[in-house]
Design a binder for these strands. Sequence first.
DNA 1: GGAATCAGGATTGTATACAATTTCAAGCCC
DNA 2: GGGCTTGAAATTGTATACAATCCTGATTCC
Lengths: 220, 220
Amino acid sequence: MKTNDSLSPQRAGKAHVVSGVIHGLLQGRWRGGERLTEDAVAQIFAVSRTPVREGMLELAAMGMVQLRRNCGAVLQPFGPKQLSEIYAVRTLLEVEAARLAAVHIPASLVDTLRLDFERLQKEKRPDEGWKFDQLLHTTIATQSGNVRLAAEINRYTLLVQTMREAVGEVLSGIQSKSIKEHIEILECLGQRDATGASEAMKRHLDQAERSALAAVYTLQ
Amino acid sequence: MKTNDSLSPQRAGKAHVVSGVIHGLLQGRWRGGERLTEDAVAQIFAVSRTPVREGMLELAAMGMVQLRRNCGAVLQPFGPKQLSEIYAVRTLLEVEAARLAAVHIPASLVDTLRLDFERLQKEKRPDEGWKFDQLLHTTIATQSGNVRLAAEINRYTLLVQTMREAVGEVLSGIQSKSIKEHIEILECLGQRDATGASEAMKRHLDQAERSALAAVYTLQ
DNA sequence: GGAATCAGGATTGTATACAATTTCAAGCCC
DNA sequence: GGGCTTGAAATTGTATACAATCCTGATTCC
């Protein structure tokens, strides 16, 4: 059993198990409710059970599988409803972070981000734009001043990113709308407008949810 | 090395490593910034490295330690600031859950909870009261209708519960205030008053934070 | 004398073997 | 015939051994 599809990365490791299972779940390789034994996963990814176990724990923390002692892991269903729930929590966390960051963030940092962003806008490089989106979200999370809140946000950022990889979501088309939303957020942060920043962040994430939803739908 | 203090539970296992490290951190056995090797933890709890590794992953997910590849785990500092951050996120999640639950919760369930609660109030059994608190929070989380939100809330409930164990927080004294807050929440839920329920929940959690803060302070 | 290099030790990452627990179905008792 | 018991298979939980990686300190070259 030495297949070479997207489910079997060449190099072993816990991270590949995690992303591989998510890919498989989103791409319809497995269905929600199915039970996965550690041995089965280990054989699929050609690794031992040790990294599989650790990967499953991570997947359980992500809410992708449910672990029961000595009973195996059951894959949780994934569809529009689940995606919506993910974005509901993510929005809750990031809107609060934007509100807090508007108070704490140094003006110099806002200016730096704005310059980076304007330079990017002229160059029009899609892949770089994706990095900026991540930078903005990470910065706001950090500047909220709440380390734990930032950590939770990063967890969701990572989850969404892994999902994007799995469905091969094309991001270049989103850029035009996304750019405007980013500018709005930055403007509010610069003016220390907490309410405005949180509202702008909410609009941005609602848009991102719609985009992700479309990507998942076209998948099936 | 077969000590029998609170850091060395009789029975081995991942769960004991997790609670044991948290106990040690909150009780001043270790300080924030200290580095823990897997071998050291394994010896302290008299288990092999396998459950230690899994426990450390869980602790990292809780934000109690920071893991770096091949570098060991550094304990995160824990004090009033960290406690406040935990409650900030917990409040964010549970207030939203209360808002949502007020819309979705069946009237029959509210009545059942109310009856349970009134019966409990007459019997005045402190340990049972603690269970009801947990039941109320869990029910509201579930009735939010967002499975993922409920899962995140349960993570924090578990974290707070473990911390309470670690500091030996006495809960009997809180009951008198807590009872009133519980009633308020139930009233609002029964009337489908989303705003009221969320505000009542916020007041309840703010009170719980103050109580937890006092417990941590008296500890040191 | 200072900085880059390289070897040794320390520590995590993975593989495998074994123990403990659970599940599930066949068999037995009522 | 239905429900309980029981035992074997399956599966997870733990222990140990080994491989890979990283940190540290002494050594050497400039």
